[in-house]
Simulated scan of single mutants.
Amino acid sequence: MRPHTSVRAIRSIQRCIRQPAQTQRPTLSQSLRLPYTATRAFTTTPTRPHNPSRSPDSTVDPTEVSHFNALASSWWDPHGSSRLLHLMNPLRHDFIASCRFNDPMTPSQKLKYLDIGCGGGIFAESAARLPDTHSVTAIDPTPGVLKIAEGHKRRDPLLMEPGRLTYLNTSIEDLPLPTRPEEAYDIVTLFEVLEHVNAPGPFISNLLPHVKPGGWLVMSTIARTWTSWLVTNVMAEDVLGIVPKGTHEWGKYVNEDELRGYFAKEPGWDGASARSLGVMYVPGLGWKEVKGGEDWGNYFFAVKRLE
């Protein structure tokens, strides 16, 4: 990384975290409910260009859509720009299994998944192949990556079975709400998405109704700390180049305690059941569990909806 680039980045971070002396800092739950801006200011409406083709309440960031459209062609290259997502996928399944270990399904029950921000379908495909899966619905607002996902799906006859894996080019705001509990999903996943939306609080509020009573919301994201900035923005993007430049915006990261505070106050959710797991990518070794890592870097988070 060039010296002058580093100086600009550090000054940018300093501007992000500086609080006016006369301004009271919002509580953690308030900060999650409010949308982010580029300077981490707490405002009442998302700062994004208007797009008449989307819901006026959409939390989709058009800049993020353009960024991931540009990466679409390499989504299924295990050595390409999505390499870290491929390597993380087994941990995703392990974490879901750990959440459900003491919450077993009935013998005849098969799981319905909703994968939000599915990208090219790395997790969606793997979930659809599991023997205890009934169906996977995977949504993404990025048409380029969904085209790749659809094409890759056609390589596997199992995934082409009616209802097994369905891709929808839509945002969560435009996905029809379930009218009956059985229409909702047992597992709603949100992997590496929360740090790419304009307003995490409203975004999460829109997806909650899609979780079946007794079901789980499972996600992975990144804590907003100096360590995460050094690891994800400086090392991963600028120095090692293992993540495409512009993938991460530090000001959009969400801390684990912010999520816990949100669900502790959100009606209908078992905040006491919330689980988290810190993880870290180690070059040459892949993703590893790191005790306490949820406080400073990448982490998984899950919470159960009350029966």
Rank of each mutant, 00 (worst) to 15 (best):
F123L: 13
P90C: 05
N69Y: 07
A97C: 10
E173N: 10
M88C: 12
I139S: 01
P104T: 11
E182F: 09
H134E: 15
D103M: 10
G80V: 06
K153N: 06
R100E: 14
N102P: 08
S82G: 11
N169R: 09
E195T: 08
R100M: 14
V197C: 06
V65K: 02
L165K: 02
Y113E: 03
D103Y: 13
E173V: 09
P104N: 10
F95N: 02
V188H: 04
E183N: 09
A97K: 13
M105G: 14
Y113G: 02
D61I: 03
E173K: 11
E150C: 10
L190Q: 03
S74Y: 08
L84H: 00
T63Y: 11
S126Y: 12
M160D: 11
L130A: 14
I148F: 04
P181Q: 06
F123P: 00
D156T: 05
L168H: 11
E195K: 09
A127P: 07
G119D: 09
L168G: 01
F101D: 13
D115M: 10
L175W: 02
R54Q: 13
L190S: 09
F123M: 11
T142D: 12
D115Q: 05
E150N: 11
T170G: 08
V60H: 01
V136Y: 01
E182D: 14
T170A: 07
V136P: 05
R83Q: 15
H86S: 04
R83G: 11
E173H: 12
G151L: 12
V136N: 00
